[in-house]
Design a protein around this nucleic acid. Sequence first.
DNA 1: ACCCAGGCGGGCG
DNA 2: CGCCCGCATGGG
Length: 300
Amino acid sequence: MASYETQTVERTDAIRADAFDMRHTFESGQPLTFHADYSEDGFSRNLAYSTGIGRISVSSSGNILHISHSGRYSRATARVEVIKRMGLNDDMERIYEGMNTDPFMDSAIRNFKGMRITENDSWETTMCFILSQFNNIKRIRLITRRMIERFGQPYSDGGTIISMFPSAEAVAGASIGDINACGTGFRGKYLKSAAKVCSENLDLKKLYGMDYASAKEALMELDGVGDKVADCILLFGYHKTEAFPIDTWIKRIIETVYFKGRNKSIKELHKFAERRWQPELLGYVQQYLFWNGRSLKVGT
DNA sequence: ACCCAGGCGGGCG
DNA sequence: CGCCCGCATGGG
């Protein structure tokens, strides 16, 4: 116990991060916000990991990203983890250059400069986006918090008990009544089914080594995971930036901006995006289209 | 009160 | 294939 306590000492680090806007990144509806222990102090977040390894908090000022970590994270590991999770390995100059095909994309880049695609735990992302269908972002967060409180394993962060993100095993073992009590609605049965598969038959970690198309096919075997949700999981859980999730917003925005408001099928929209932008940029294109279009209420 | 939300599964022609 | 429908719940 004594040695455990000494390992919970807070350590700090800082890295330079150009073209990184923490507010845009954290508020862009990606799952890391759903379980973050959230404090509005300048701008900082605690990332409570489902691994139980420890906690990493990040805050930003200018182009400096401050890291503070405890538990069994070494300084080097924490640093690598933050860089990976914040998408800091992505070359934004090159990405912006490829994305910027027209005035709307140009304004999206100007309005949301520094917004990164984050990389989140695969099960956590899967669960969050199963909950996302026919739902809104605020309520997805509400449900997720309740799931964390009810099913998350406790973790002691230097004496402060936090609840980790519930594992697939924990959700699979929960009764449908307890799951529904979190406000999941009709998605509860999908979630339980998917959790069971993910804890018994499908190793989500295996998808990291698979190409985009194969990984998508595997994910779509899960209950409650269709074309759009699979693309979200691949983008935000696996950082497969070929994924181009098309939701009601993206559909409306592309139809309005690029097709004079004419109705297009999801398939046609995928085809349009694939012809217009390089494959590895599609995830970023989608994220910028979505947030710029939403903030400008395009098509509404 | 009423409307809608980062879709999906199931059933139909 | 494409199309249509129902769906639980909480916030505006």
